[in-house]
Design a protein around this nucleic acid. Sequence first.
DNA 1: CGCAGTGTATTATGGCACTGATGCACCTGA
DNA 2: TCAGGTGCATCAGTGCCATAATACACTGCG
Lengths: 113, 113
Amino acid sequence: MTQQSRPVYLKLRDQIAASIIEGEYEEGAMLPSVRAFAAEQGANPLTVAKAYQQFQTDGLVEVQRGVGMYVVDGAAAKLRRSERDQFISEEWPEIQSRMKRLGINPADLLESA
Amino acid sequence: MTQQSRPVYLKLRDQIAASIIEGEYEEGAMLPSVRAFAAEQGANPLTVAKAYQQFQTDGLVEVQRGVGMYVVDGAAAKLRRSERDQFISEEWPEIQSRMKRLGINPADLLESA
DNA sequence: CGCAGTGTATTATGGCACTGATGCACCTGA
DNA sequence: TCAGGTGCATCAGTGCCATAATACACTGCG
């Protein structure tokens, strides 16, 4: 058994990325503090920090020590594009071959949108 | 960093499932022995056993002690159906919402099939 | 019977990802 | 100045994963 649930910090990371893309966190605005977001999500501050970290190394957020983390200009577009490329080049091929193997007709799924 | 590589026994499990669905391991045929498959894949026999185990509990393979493990009749269809249901009900909704968020037009992807 | 091949159970060990608690360095605003 | 809010570093604990070394029960075959 051992259900291999996706790590929390990755879930948070995806959630934040989605919020940036959606514009919920506008560019130039400050992200929720590590502690605040942790409390809100019922997670550990360090886990949230780990989720944030990737964004700074990718240059999507700017850190001002003692102040907070701010969304860089153009972050949404940049993020959307990188995720889009990654999706098309890596994930979609597998999804496609899998649908084929399972006998799923893609067109059927799209109609129920 | 820490990149969350999928556990070996799950990879093997998926690989075997795909082989069964594809008919590479025909129904009634014997699966590769634990030791043989382990040697072939460069894995540990116990890890392979762990991958196999789920199939027996699901009734997809039949174990004959001292002989080997055989693919049950109807295993391919059963497997395809369960994976299909799981895909449609759980994975596809997320994929769909993600494509929408990334501004990907599903129809475009289907054309390049 | 005896041998070689199956799957399985047991125990132990190392590694590493994930989470957590605590304390520190830094900045802002009153 | 100093109090409160930031992010960050360090140390530790937990659990899963993978491997290993044996040993056992069973079967098919010569």
